[in-house]
Nucleic acid binder design. Structure first.
Length: 179
DNA sequence: TCAGTGATTAGG
DNA sequence: CTAATCACTGAG
């Protein structure tokens, strides 16, 4: 018998690889309401409920950084799901993304907001997430992971933010999910 | 509405 | 090497 889904859904249980290697359009809404757990510099553990995310889906999605092919920056998106894609934008803000899907199927979920923290730049500033988290594996890391946190909440969808360059079709995909 | 701020990328 | 671009934020 395969690993019990019931066990996976218990609160305060680290989410395993199976969750991440599905298509990003399944994983992104599934991340809403989960806890992002991070071990701080003083060794205390903080938990934040994830409230706002966006899906970036593969080569064809013109808004996805991987649509231009593999580069040193986007290389991690081509790995199997569960790794972190972290990059600097506008010279000031680190963006935190969770890679999803199978190997060589580049996808990721941008973490736009946590409970009481609105905006992807504020998320990483609050959690002190920077370049050093690039490539971190949420399945095995001892300093950052996701865990289940009870029932899946209701959520809304909308087009993704800040991707005017991607063209009308990709700009209009309702791939932002938020509480 | 718009400046800040620097890594990343394509191109010469 | 150069120059454009950028999944943002906060001030006015």
């Amino acid at each position: 018998m395969e690993k019990s889904r019931t066990e996976d859904m218990q609160p305060y249980c680290r989410i395993s690889r199976d969750f991440y290697i599905r298509d990003v359009l399944e994983v992104a809404p599934g991340i809403i309401g989960k806890n992002l757990v991070i071990v701080l510099h003083d060794d205390s553990v903080a938990r934040y409920r994830i409230s706002d995310v966006e899906a970036y889906r593969g080569y064809e999605d013109k808004a996805c950084h991987a649509s231009k092919g593999k580069t040193p920056r986007t290389e991690v998106m081509f790995r199997e799901g569960g790794h972190l894609y972290v990059y600097l934008i506008y010279g000031m803000y680190w963006m935190l993304n969770i890679v999803t899907g199978t190997e060589d199927n580049p996808q990721a979920v941008l973490i736009r907001g946590l409970a009481n923290i609105s905006g992807p730049g504020k998320v990483t500033k609050t959690l002190s997430i920077d370049r050093s988290y690039y490539g971190e594996d949420l399945v095995t890391s001892s300093r950052i992971w996701l865990e289940n946190a009870g029932a899946a909440p209701e959520y809304k969808t909308s087009p993704r933010i800040g991707i005017d360059y991607a063209g009308e079709y990709w700009k209009s995909r309702p791939w932002r999910y938020y509480i």
